[in-house]
Structure formats: C-alpha cells, structure tokens
Amino acid sequence: MATTIKSEFERIRNTEVWRTIFRSGSGSSNLHRSQAVQQNIFLHLFSVKVRSRALEFSPTWYLGALTLSTFFILIATGILLMFYYHPSVPQAYADMKDLQFVVASGVFLRNLHRWSAHAMVFLVFAHMFKVFYRGAYRPPRQFNWVIGVFLLLITLLLSYTGYLLPWDQLAFWAVTVGSNIAKAVPLMGKQIRFLMLGGNEVNANALLRFYVLHCVILPLAAILLVGVHFWRIRKDGGLYVPEKKQL
C-alpha cells in the first residue's frame, strides 16, 4: 500500500504539468534538492545547505522558527476573523459576541488568534535574548540584528493595535492610556495623538485607523522585514553557531 502511494506520487512528480511548476523533478540527489530550494521563490531565501550544528536544539532553541510559526497562525486566523468583523462602534463589540456565541468555531479562532499573539510577543523577546547571549549579532550580522529590533517593534505595535479592535473596556482604556503616552512626546505630542486617533478622543475614527494599521500596514511591513531577515541569514553566512569550547 505504502509503496503504491509512493510510486503514484512519484508518477505525479514526473508529469509535465508538475515539472512546469517544480522544475527540480523527482530525483533525490543533492543537485535535485539544491534546485528544489533555489527554484522556489520562497525557499530561495535560504541557502541550499545548512550546518548540521545549526539544526541542533541548543544553539537556537528553535525560537526563530517558533516565532515564524505563530506568525503564520496569526495570519491564517486573522484573515478568517476579518470575515465576521466590522470596524465600527458599537458593532465591533457585537461582532465579538457573535464570534463567541453564533459563528461556528468563532470562539476557537478568536482564542487561537489571541493566545498566538501572546505567544509571539513572548517568543520574539526570547529569540532576541537568545541571539544576544549566543553572540549572533556580531559582524557580519549587525544589520540583521537591527532588522530584528524593528520586527520586535512591529510585533508590539501589532499587539497594541489589535488590542483595541474588540472594543471592550480593556481595549478602550489600554488605548486611552497608550495614546496619552504619545502625548508626552515633546513639541509635537498633541499632533501625534491627534493623528493616531483621528480626533481628540478614542472613538470610531481611532478604531478604524487601528484596524487599517492592524490588518494591512503592519502585517505588510512585518512580512517584508521577515523576508529580508531570512535572506540576510543566507547572505551573512548561515545561522551563527558558536564553536564548542571549554571554559
């Protein structure tokens, strides 16, 4: 049975149509495997080979991979949640209640989105500290560290903008406090707050602005920087793994 499936899969991989999509074909030589990476728009960000030390658990704890995993989950659940969400006052809150009690699997998707967001913030911080203690920010990887800092900021901004969207008490007052922190910026604090909220108080305009930031601008920025972040790993000579040394 297993061999039938395998040979059938092999046959599909050798069809002309499949070969137009994945040019590397069905072989399992290193050449084929290299081509499978090089000729794929997403995988070609990575190098064809990696040091086997870099795949061990101890240097990275897989924190980067886990962060990316939560980001994937967030994109998938976020898009699904958008189908049942209106960014308007007070409909936004009613939509939360609908997700909880009316929409099939709505409460599960909302839970998954919220908990993954918490997990992602935690993992991004953990990833940063792990990279620091491993010394992986050193040349030639300086700029990738800087991109990482910006990704941390984008992650926090994504959480913050997402926090307002349910339009509940927690959301409202967290954003009231947050927007007043912006007011403390010297010279142009008031203008920044006005632009951020689209008015003088946290209201429908603010909700819409945060919605656009949360669903369009910040995710696009994050995807872009994540792409550069991975590409830089290859360009900087692969994941940094300290040599095993005795103290």
Partner: peptide, 27 residues
C-alpha cells in the same frame, strides 16, 4: 485555545474606568 477563552470585558464605556485598568502583560 480549546481550554481557555480569550478575555472579553464589557463594551467600551468612556464613563467608567475599570479599577485597576491594566494593559496586556507585555506592557
């Protein structure tokens, strides 16, 4: 997600500040 529900408080009310008003844990 199957075991714990995400928090959702009452609808936003500018006339009443919850006590204590806390941001999410990372803030």
């Amino acid at each position: 997600s199957l075991l714990a529900n995400a928090p959702l408080e009452g609808i936003a009310d500018p006339m009443h500040t919850p006590n204590p008003a806390k941001a999410p844990w990372y803030f």
